[in-house]
Design a protein around this nucleic acid. Sequence first.
DNA 1: GCCAACGTTGGC
DNA 2: GCCAACGTTGGC
Length: 154
Amino acid sequence: MRYWLMKSEPSDVSIDDLANLPNQSVAWYGVRNYQARNFMRDQMHIGDGVLFYHSNCKEPGITGIARVSSSAYPDAKQFDKNSKYFDPKATQETPRWFNVDVQLVKKTNLISLAELRNHPELEHMRTLQRGNRLSITPLDPAEWKFITGQLVRN
DNA sequence: GCCAACGTTGGC
DNA sequence: GCCAACGTTGGC
């Protein structure tokens, strides 16, 4: 069992969008970074814990808890000429990009980026490191436990 | 909208 | 294989 933080721009898919989807589940399409792709393709398993994070918005931070709900499969958008995620170098035979499905477990209070930075327990979190831009990062079990146990209010 | 930081591309 | 140029991310 692993734990992940996954960023989504709420203007694209917000936590409320996720909550309103069938099965409250979404294909995590559009990742076009090899490191993030490899996390999904090689290391994620069904049931892994996910912190759903809103990025590039007015109030960046964690807004929900989710879970990995499928193993990795080719990202459909890479084949869609009308998508901004279209990749002319990808083919059905040799897809380049993969995604998993992510399913909502529950919405949480907003745990803002500023608040995350306040806790020494989280000082090594990948997402909080200077210059980090990865949209998918692994979490230490202790970080997961601290956030879900101490910072999430029920 | 700005801009620092980082990743990718492609000429050589 | 180097590295300059360019594109993207994402907080502010």
